[in-house]
Design a protein around this nucleic acid. Structure first.
Length: 539
DNA sequence: TGAAGTTTAA
C-alpha cells in the first residue's frame, strides 16, 4: 500500500486518477499474489489456510474465523464462468473509460484501437457502470454506434437519455431525443417518462410539463398513464404546485383515475400541505372515485410526521368503519413513526394490533421492526427478528442486510458486518451503495485504508457507482481520522467527475488543512471548489 | 424506481 506521504505526493504530481489507479493496482497485486486470479469472487482472495492478512498500515486484522468460501466453491467458479470473455471485455473497456476525458469525442478516439467483441448486454453493463459519468458513457455509446454490428436499440437509447438527464446535460439529451425521433420508432412512453422524471429532478418543472404537452409531436399519444407519470415526477421532486396546476390544465382532456388522485394526495402530504391533500381527496370523491387504503395511508403518514398520533388513531378507526381496513403498509408507517419517536412500547403494540387484525407482516415490515429495535439499542431482539423472518416465509432483502450491517457497524462489530456481506453474496442478494456506506465510514474512522480500498474496488466490480454522498462520506471520515492526503485525493476525484462537493465537506477539509498548515493543498482544494462550481449547469 | 411503507447523512 502506498504510504500517506506518497499518496499526497502522487496527488500533487499526477492528479487523482493515476494515483487512484496506482492504489487499486497495489491492492490488486497484493491480493493476486496471495492466492487466486483476480476474476475469482472477492472473498476467495482472502487466504483460506487460516493465516491472517496483516497490513502494516491497518491496525485491523481480517477475520479468519469466518470461513468465507469453501475450496469447492473456488473450483466451481474456475470451471463455470460462461460469461468470462464478456466480463473481461467489460473490464477492458472500463479501464479505458476510467481515465479522465473532457469530451465524448475524446472517449471515441481513446476507444479507437479497442478490439473487443461488443454485444448489447455488454453495452448495457458498461452504461450502468458509468451511469454517473456522462462523458465516458456517452462517448462509449457513440463509439458503439460506429461499430459495424450496431443496430439501433430503443433500450440503449433510453439508457443514454436517462444518464444525460441524470447528469443534467439536458441540451445533449434533447439532441439525442430528436435523433431518436428522426430514426423512427425509438421513442416510447418509457423514454418520455425518463425525460419527465429527470427534468423534474433537475428542478425544470415547466420543461417537464412542456415535454408532456408536446408528446404528440414525438408521435406518442397523451394518455392518463403518461399524465400520472408527469404528476408523480413533479410531486416527487418538490413541485407539488406545478403538479396541481398541470392537473387542472389536463383533467378535462384526460379523465383522472384513482392513481391520479393518490399521486396528488401523497404529493401534498409529503409537502406538508394537508389542506391541499384534503382538497384532492374531496375532488376525488366529486369525480365519483372512493378514497382507498392508499389515499388514507398517505394521510396517516402525514399525521405521523406531525407526531399527531391521536389523529392517526382516528383515521385508523375511520378506515375500519368504512370497510377499508389498514394493510401492512399502513401498519409499517405507524409502527416506524412511533419507533422513531422513541415510543418503542407503543410501536410494538402496533405489531400486536396488526397480528390481531389478521394482517400478515412482510419483509419491509420486518425491516422496519429490525431498524427500530436496533436504534433502541435492542440488538439482540433485532437479531431474533432477523432469524425469525425467514421462518415466517419472508426472505431478507437488500434493506434487511443494509439495516443489519449498519447496526453492526454502529456497534463496531465489523466481523458481523462482513459476515452479513458474505451472506448477501451467498444468497445472491445484490448489495448497493447503502450496504457499503457504513462499512466505508467505519474504515475511515478506524484508519483501515487497505480494507477501504478493497471495498471501493469491490463496489466498482459489482457495478455500484460511487456518487456525491459517498465521496463526501469518505472526505469527512478521512478528515475526522486525520488522513488529509487521502481526503484531498477523493475531493479532487469528485470534482473531476463533475460533482459539486457539499459545502460543509469542503469547509471541513479546508479547516483541517489550515489546522495542519498544509497551505499548498489548501490552495489546491480551494481552486478545485471554484472549478466544481463553474462546472455546474445553471438550473 | 415510480399510486402508499422499511436503510442514510454531511
Amino acid at each position: 500500500m502506498l504510504s500517506k506521504s506518497k499518496h499526497l505526493d502522487a496527488f500533487l504530481r499526477f492528479g487523482p486518477q493515476r494515483t487512484w489507479n496506482m492504489c487499486v493496482q497495489v491492492v490488486h497485486k497484493r491480493f493476486c499474489s496471495m492466492n487466486e486470479s483476480p476474476e475469482l469472487p472477492n472473498w476467495v482472495k482472502y487466504p483460506l489456510d487460516g493465516s491472517s492478512v496483516v497490513d502494516s498500515v491497518d491496525d485491523f486484522v481480517l477475520p479468519t474465523t469466518v470461513n468465507y468460501v469453501s475450496t469447492k466453491k473456488v473450483q466451481d467458479c474456475k470451471i463455470s464462468m460462461p460469461s468470462k470473455i464478456t466480463d473481461n471485455d467489460v473490464e477492458e473497456i472500463s479501464t479505458i473509460l476510467k481515465s479522465l476525458y473532457t469530451s465524448p469525442e475524446e472517449v471515441v478516439k481513446a476507444l479507437d484501437h479497442c478490439y473487443v467483441v461488443v454485444s448489447e448486454s455488454m453495452v448495457e453493463k458498461v452504461l450502468k457502470r458509468f451511469s454517473n459519468d456522462w462523458i465516458p458513457a456517452f462517448g462509449f455509446f457513440r463509439w458503439y454506434q460506429m461499430q459495424s454490428t450496431y443496430k439501433h436499440s430503443a433500450n440503449l437509447y433510453d439508457s443514454v437519455v436517462d444518464i444525460l438527464g441524470k447528469t443534467k446535460m439536458f441540451d445533449i439529451m434533447w439532441e439525442l431525443v430528436v435523433e431518436m425521433f428522426q430514426l423512427g420508432g425509438l421513442i416510447s412512453l418509457t423514454t418520455m417518462s425518463k425525460i419527465m422524471r429527470r427534468l423534474a429532478r433537475g428542478g425544470k418543472y415547466v420543461d417537464a410539463i412542456v415535454a408532456f404537452r408536446e408528446m404528440e409531436r414525438f408521435g406518442l399519444s397523451k394518455d392518463i398513464v403518461a399524465m400520472n407519470v408527469l404528476l408523480d415526477s413533479l410531486c416527487k421532486e418538490r413541485g407539488v404546485e406545478y403538479a396541481l396546476d398541470a392537473f387542472l390544465e389536463f383533467k378535462n382532456e384526460m379523465p383522472p383515475n384513482s392513481h391520479t388522485f393518490n399521486v396528488l394526495i401523497h404529493g401534498c402530504c409529503k409537502a406538508r400541505q394537508l389542506n391541499k391533500a384534503q382538497w384532492a381527496l374531496e375532488e376525488m370523491e366529486r369525480c365519483g372515485i372512493h378514497p382507498c387504503v392508499i389515499s388514507y395511508t398517505s394521510l396517516i403518514e402525514a399525521y405521523c410526521r406531525e407526531k399527531d398520533f391521536r389523529k392517526v388513531d382516528a383515521i385508523l378507526d375511520e378506515m375500519q368503519s368504512k370497510g377499508c381496513p389498514p394493510n401492512v403498509v399502513t401498519y409499517t408507517i405507524v409502527m416506524h413513526s412511533l419507533g422513531k419517536a422513541k415510543e418503542t412500547y407503543e410501536a410494538l403494540g402496533i405489531y400486536e394490533r396488526m397480528k390481531r387484525n389478521g394482517c400478515v407482516p412482510d419483509t419491509s415490515f420486518y425491516n422496519s421492526l429490525i431498524y427500530i429495535l436496533s436504534k433502541a439499542g435492542r440488538i439482540k431482539d433485532a437479531n431474533n427478528i432477523y432469524e425469525d423472518m425467514s421462518k415466517n416465509g419472508c426472505m431478507p432483502d437488500v434493506t434487511t442486510y443494509n439495516t443489519m450491517i449498519s447496526a453492526a457497524c454502529d456497534h463496531s462489530q465489523v466481523e458481523n458486518a462482513l459476515k452479513l456481506l458474505q451472506e448477501m453474496e451467498e444468497t445472491l442478494c445484490k448489495p448497493d451503495l447503502k450496504t457499503y456506506a457504513p462499512l466505508l465510514k467505519l474504515c475511515c474512522q478506524k484508519k483501515w485504508m487497505r480494507i477501504l480500498f478493497f471495498l471501493l474496488d469491490d463496489m466498482f466490480k459489482k457495478d455500484i457507482s460511487i456518487e456525491i454522498g459517498t465521496y463526501c462520506l469518505l472526505v469527512n471520515g478521512l478528515c475526522k481520522s486525520g488522513n488529509l492526503g487521502q481526503a484531498c485525493l477523493f475531493f479532487e476525484e469528485m470534482v473531476l467527475k463533475g460533482l459539486l462537493p457539499w459545502s460543509n465537506t469542503y469547509s471541513r477539509l479546508v479547516k483541517e488543512l489550515e489546522r495542519k498548515e498544509m497551505e499548498t493543498e489548501k490552495e489546491k482544494i480551494r481552486q478545485l471548489m471554484e472549478q466544481a462550481k463553474s462546472m455546474q449547469q445553471p438550473c
